[in-house]
Design a protein around this nucleic acid. Structure first.
Lengths: 197, 197
DNA sequence: CCATAGACAGACAGGTTTGTCTGCTAGCGA
DNA sequence: TCGCTAGCAGACAAACCTGTCTGTCTATGG
């Protein structure tokens, strides 16, 4: 208990990482309940005891999976916003490019959180994480709208997040780039209309 | 085989109806995979053999459930549109009132189809039904937009359906009437902007 | 009065799921 | 060399899930 206790909280052992990567791919592709731990164990080539050492219960693995989804998707959203330049109004529109990029990846199946929430009743940790994620995105967008100097930042952010979630939800049905394009251009229209003058 | 053969195709026996009602409530509330046939059988107070006589497999019950969801939700959408008067542009906005009504009902958990699709991989009958439902709604809205005489009916309808799905998806997380209100007012804004002159 | 349809009750089979437990092996620092 | 950590392999228990089957009860129409 000397050298590793620092990295203990980071919990980034390679085996754990391998399990988590396999699991997150399977969960996203097939759904939380549809994937059993046996499948994850077989697919990641790990022993059952090892699996349960890292994740004492399936639910903890699911939570870890959602944290990854959050990190990845939030990152893509921020990157797309950044790519649109320094102007917050432009960023608010630019973030929708992440949608187009995402729906062109194959295996795209919409938003991992929305899909997860459909399987988890309210009050469960899974559901709570989803709510927290959506709230974080909304609050980020509200800040951006505020910086852009629009009249009602909360309303604009809400509209845009509705558009985003709609595109994500319909993306789980058919990964149609058309939906992303319409979401993006509608976002541009809403932002332009909300801007002062 | 004289009096009942007419109603045979309608398949509306009271027992079947009772099973279906119980199942559709449970499926919507907890999810497709989370509800086992045993629970449905117990809850509807029916014998196992009777259950399997009416629905030879769980999948058929799920399909029947989705047909109900489709009928109910489409009905509410149409009713809300009708209530807004004869003007198609008004109807396009008015249909969003169904959202507000829905999210105030308790036990509201968003769109049964979106939730179902999250559990069913592409290519399955469940997934197909969902796509068909969403396509039907979109096409209805496109017709309305066309009648309203907007410049690009397809685009307006797409925007509005994105908004609708977004509100439905976020409704599965928290049944916040605020989301419905913003969806509605944003719809009004988009319709007004799309109208000629 | 009795034959038949439809429903009830519940045992049963066979598969899957989560999670535990026992043993074995390989590396690594003391 | 010893002991510790981390991982592998796989048996096992207990619950649960779908679907089948046997047998009983009751209402209704001929």
């Amino acid at each position: 208990m000397k050298s590793q206790e620092v990295s203990m909280s980071a919990t980034a052992s390679p085996t754990r990482q391998r399990i988590l990567e396999t699991a997150t791919a399977l969960f996203y592709a097939r759904g939380l309940r549809a994937v059993g731990v046996d499948t994850i164990i077989a697919e990641s080539g790990v022993a059952k005891a090892t699996f349960y050492k890292h994740f004492p219960a399936k639910d903890e693995l699911i939570i870890a999976h959602l944290d990854i989804v959050d990190k990845v998707w939030s990152g893509q959203l921020h990157d797309a916003a950044q790519a649109a330049g320094p102007n917050p109004a432009d960023q608010l529109v630019g973030l929708f490019d992440a949608l187009d990029t995402a729906c062109r990846r194959n295996g795209y199946r919409g938003c991992g959180f929305i899909n997860a929430a459909a399987e988890a009743p309210a009050g469960t940790p899974v559901h709570d994480r989803t709510v927290a994620h959506k709230r974080a995105v909304l609050s980020w967008m509200t800040d951006l709208a505020h910086e852009a100097g629009v009249e009602d930042p909360a309303r604009l952010a809400r509209s845009l997040s509705l558009l985003l979630d709609g595109a994500l939800a319909s993306g789980a049905l058919d990964a149609d780039p058309e939906a992303a394009a319409v979401a993006s251009s509608t976002a541009a229209q809403l932002v332009a209309a909300a801007l002062p003058h």
